[in-house]
Amino acid sequence: MNRIEKRMEELKQNNEKAFITYITAGLPDMGRTAEIIKAQEGITDVIELGIPFSDPTADGPVIQQASYEAIQNGATLKKTFALMDELRRGGCEQPVVFMMYYNTILNYGIADFVTKCRETGVDGLIVPDLPIEEQDLLRDALKGDDTTLMIELVSPVSKDRIPGILSGARGFVYCVSSMGVTGQAADFHREVVSYLSKVKEQSHIPVMMGFGIREASDVRPMKDIIDGCIVGSYFIKIMRENGFDAKAAKEYASRFKKELNEL
C-alpha cells in the first residue's frame, strides 16, 4: 500500500487530523533537509518536499526566495533523489510528496523520472502548473504501480471542475484556501467554508487545506470539514528563524499537530 494512503487510513481509524509541512529541498543544504524530515517522523503525517525551480509561478515571496537560495546552493532534482534514497535506506518511512514544476519533470524525462520516484520511495507528486487537462503523459507513466501517486489540487474557483478533478484523485486532495500563490497570511477566500464543504461532500479521499496557514487555530472555522492542513511558507519562516534547527521543526510540528486535534 502507498505510504500516504496507509497513513490516511491510520488517521481515519484514530479519528485524527493530518498535518503536513512543506520544506524546500536543499535549503540551506541537503544534509539539513534530511534532518528536518527525520525529526518530524511520527509527528508530521506527510512531508511536502519542494524541488527548487527558477520560475515558481505558484509560489509567493517566501518559497520563491527559498527556491532561489536552494538553487544557488546547488540543489537539483538529482540531488533530491539521492537524498530520498539515503532517507529510505536509513529506514525513514515518513510519507513524502514532491512539490515541483512540470518543466523539471520534462527535463529529466517523464519515464526516467517516474522510475526514479519509485526507486527512491517518493510517495506522491504535486505539480501546480499541471492541471488535469495536461496530466495525460505523466499519469500514463504512473499507471500500474501505486508507489507514487498524483496528488490533485482544487481551488476556490474550481466549481464545476471539482468532480473531474476528484475522479482520478488518490491519497488526499489539496484544497487551496485562497486564490493566487502560497504564503499570503490567513487571508482565505471569502467563500472558503462553503467551497471546502462542497469538495468534502464529493470527495472519496481526505481533504487537506493549504495556503496561508500559520497556527492550528487558523483552521478552526473549518475544523469539521477538513481532514487536515498544510503549512508551507510559515514553516520555512520558522526554520529560518531557528537556523534550520531540526529540533525547532519537531517542536512546531508537535504543538501544531496536538492543537489541530484539540480544536
Binding site: 509561478t57 505558484a58 512540470y102 501546480p128 502548473d129 499541471l130 492541471p131 487537462e133 495536461e134 489540487l153 482544487v154 481551488s155 476556490p156 474557483v157 474550481s158 466549481k159 471542475r161 478533478i165 487551496v176 486564490m179 493566487g180
Partner: peptide, 12 residues
Amino acid sequence: GGQFVSESLMNT
C-alpha cells in the same frame, strides 16, 4: 502550446 497553469486559472 497547451495550458500549463494552476488549477485556479483553468476556469478563467
